[in-house]
Amino acid sequence: MSNLEKYDEVFMTNFQVSREQLPVLTYQSVSVWDSVGHMGLVASMEESFGIMMDPEDIIGFSSYEEGKRILENYDISV
């Protein structure tokens, strides 16, 4: 599974959304991506990629696209 597939899978599993919805997905754009859902997303992302994110990255993880950029901080190219 590529990094992009793993990344997409985390979103689709956590938020029950389709792949087509992902590019425009932003924090609070769907009801399940609230503050609680956000921590669940972070936990899943960390588990999938074997990382622990810093608080500023957790806060900055504001969209599907922004998350890809943030993962680069952990040497992960999506």
Partner: peptide, 10 residues
Amino acid sequence: IQLASRLMSR
């Protein structure tokens, strides 16, 4: 607590 709870939450 922040860091440990992230492992525990999994």
